[in-house]
Design a protein around this nucleic acid. Structure first.
Lengths: 106, 106
DNA sequence: TGCATAATTGGCAAAATAACCAAATAAGAT
DNA sequence: ATCTTATTTGGTTATTTTGCCAATTATGCA
């Protein structure tokens, strides 16, 4: 792989990386249902506000979520609904893994 | 989030993590076209064999690829074709980002 | 049996990531 | 203008990840 090609894959990987963290995955799911401000998400996640804010910043930079400021609060929502397809595939992988383990003990 | 829930999201995130690296992303694409042995992939990727082998081990453990031993060689292939849907969404995100930048300068 | 090839594993150093706390910024309310 | 609330940013530490080299394992061949 030359440098140009590697850069191309790095860009794409960075979007996947944004999703590849339990907290961010959870937040993406919540944001797919309705938009939330930082404190609401902080409450749901159960980590420090600053940590949650940084996670949201990663999601924002990836282009996966929308940001809207309303007075003192900042509301995040899911921009790319197709990200939810990822999760369907992840579930499919888990089902396959479970089947493999079943096969292994028979 | 309680511990059970967090564990649930960690499992799912680990599958996404397997995809979220430029080298592994590239290999998944190659393996979607045809199966390859480790040395072939090493050639294409341009990193040390041991590095490529470790990346492949991550993909294998995620359940995304199949492994088949043939004589001295080990062939990897894409198991979960749905992983390619991920990449379609990634492309969609990139198109949106490009559009945003266009809008910004107008 | 010994040799060559293919792949994996262990160990180490450098880089990236994630968590917290403290401090700074932004905006509405008194 | 000051105070309070919401969010972000800077800094530190601990952990994880990635890459290479060297050594080991596995398989087929002479």
């Amino acid at each position: 792989m030359n440098n140009t090609k590697r850069a191309r894959y790095e860009t794409r990987a960075s979007i996947l990386k944004a999703l590849a963290h339990p907290t961010r995955l959870f937040m993406i799911e919540q944001l797919s249902k309705k938009s939330h401000c930082v404190l609401e998400l902080t409450e749901m996640v159960g980590l420090d506000v600053s940590t949650v804010s940084k996670h949201l910043s990663i999601l924002k930079n990836s282009g996966l979520v929308n940001v809207e400021k309303k007075g003192k609060q900042v509301f995040y929502s899911l921009r790319m609904r197709c990200a939810l397809n990822f999760l369907d595939c992840v579930e499919a992988v888990l089902r396959e893994q479970a089947q493999d383990r079943m096969d292994a003990i028979q």
